[in-house]
Design a protein around this nucleic acid. Structure first.
Length: 228
DNA sequence: ACATTAACGATGA
DNA sequence: TCATCGTTAATGT
């Protein structure tokens, strides 16, 4: 495909800068790129974890679907982010589905490349520990948000994490995401997500667009998410 | 109380 | 034309 877009994406990945030239070249050479339309399955639950997954453009989500057909979304993955390292490290089958919630371009780093990088590059391993630690913190904060029993806080936390520059350095102020998906990721219905978004828009915290959200005051968002 | 599902029309791309 | 949004009504916990 377009190796230019891939190169640009890889160069923007925070761990890339600390690699040697030879390491960077191997990553560039062995990483694949594929496009997905909205709703398409990127990785299916139960299949081998053959790749580490990076979002070049668009947005993915991680979810499971129960036997009854209900889905539970766990995390949104905006462009610039990588996901799925847990299953790759463990060598297990994919525990969850990864689905595109926007038309997306996705990078696939083969498991062998990933493991070699982990062995060969101390800075990469260090970055990876930070990544896993950040994700752990994310889920702990999510439990806290759930404990508050406050749907507005859940929606705020969902957005605050998607727009968190520490978690997702590539993220901009504005994200293309529907209210339907915000609801799914927040664990509330679309109607409640809609109401919470309007309350926050009225408070000047964000701006609602058609299929998009622009955050104006990330600090205020985090304040609500933390239980104000 | 407050969230959910269902349903409807309106509207943006 | 289709996805998305804004809203209301009925229902559930």
């Amino acid at each position: 495909m377009n190796s230019d877009a891939l190169r640009k994406f890889l160069d923007g990945s925070p761990w890339m800068a600390s690699l040697t030239l030879a390491q960077a070249e191997r990553v560039q050479r062995e990483t694949l790129v594929r496009s997905f339309e909205t709703g398409a399955m990127v990785c299916a639950r139960g299949t081998p974890s053959a790749h580490w997954v990076g979002v070049v453009h668009g947005m993915l989500k991680v979810e499971t679907i129960t036997a009854g057909g209900k889905s539970a979304s766990f995390i949104g993955v905006p462009s610039g982010a990588w996901v799925g390292e847990g299953a790759v490290i463990k060598g297990e089958l994919r525990p969850y589905d990864v689905v595109a919630i926007r038309d997306s371009v996705v990078a696939f780093m083969p498991r062998a490349t990933f493991q070699w990088l982990m062995q060969d590059s101390h800075p990469f391993s260090a970055w990876l520990i930070g990544q896993l630690n950040a994700r752990l913190g994310h889920f702990i904060a999510m439990v806290q948000s759930l404990r508050l029993n406050n749907t507005k806080a859940q929606v705020a936390y969902c957005l605050a994490s998607l727009f968190n520059p520490d978690l997702y350095p590539g993220t901009t102020r504005q994200l293309d995401i529907s209210q339907e998906e915000i609801g799914r990721l927040s664990g509330v219905s679309r109607q409640i997500a809609n109401r919470a978004l309007h309350e926050m828009q009225d408070a000047g915290i964000l701006r609602i667009g058609y299929g998009s959200i622009e955050v104006l005051d990330l600090a205020a968002l985090q304040e609500i998410a933390g239980g104000a």
